[in-house]
Computed example of a mutant assay.
Amino acid sequence: MRQIASFISSVLPGKVTQRHLPGEEGVWIFIFGDMMIFAVFFSTFMYYRGENLEIFQRSQALLNINLGTLNTLLLLASSWFVVIAMEAVRQSRIKLAANLFSGAFLFGLSFCLVKIIEYSEKVSAGYTLNTDLFFTLYFVFTGVHLFHVILGLIVLSLIIRSCRNDEVTGDKIRFFEGGSCFWHMVDLLWIVLFPLIYLVD
């Protein structure tokens, strides 16, 4: 922990570095395509909410906002660990980077566990895909997002393994950057989904 704290304090002031597009171009095409799909999800949710306001408000009140908030904090913490892990990679502090990526992985895994608990609560109480339109969209949209989290965890596990087993070359760094950008996208999508599904009144 002392090593991590020291590293964070060393990078907070920041240095002016040459800017470049992180990762491979193909990763960005995938990310932008994914974000467009979720934009359709968001628009669909708001459209049907406007058409079925009473149903949506009644069903939204049944959600566990505490678990939703906890998951938001978990993903934000995970993304922060990824940011400082990438800074460690660029400074060739690979062992530290592996530990930070591992922390990000654990936060992401915790998100999955909390989401499973939340789903279990709903199903046990009798709320499923077929309950009403709100819960149909809730399970579909959060389920698709959960699938993205799982994909992100697989990418993080590959990054961690590369940190520990291989020499980190330019190609590896681009893979790390692309994987980190994907993870940040997953976080960003949840930042939109959370208020949209849990908080919009």
Rank of each mutant, 00 (worst) to 15 (best):
D34H: 06
L153E: 08
R58T: 12
N130L: 00
D201M: 13
P13Y: 07
I116W: 07
R174V: 04
N64T: 09
G179P: 02
L199Q: 05
N66V: 15
L189K: 04
T72Y: 06
Q3H: 11
I160A: 09
Y198W: 02
F147R: 01
L75M: 09
I84A: 03
G178K: 04
R93Y: 08
D166S: 13
T142I: 11
F45V: 03
T131Q: 03
K115G: 10
V144T: 12
I173H: 01
T69A: 15
V192Q: 02
V140Y: 08
L199R: 01
Q3W: 10
L189A: 01
N99Y: 09
I116K: 00
W183Y: 13
N64P: 09
K122V: 10
T142R: 12
G23H: 05
S124Q: 14
V27T: 15
W28I: 05
D34Q: 13
E25H: 15
A104S: 09
N66Y: 15
G68A: 10
Y127F: 12
E25M: 15
D34K: 01
R2E: 15
V140P: 01
G152T: 01
G33I: 08
N64Y: 09
S6N: 15
A39I: 02
I37T: 13
A85W: 02
V200A: 12
Y138M: 03
I8S: 08
R2W: 03
F176Y: 13
T17S: 12
D171K: 14
S120K: 06
K115R: 06
W80K: 11
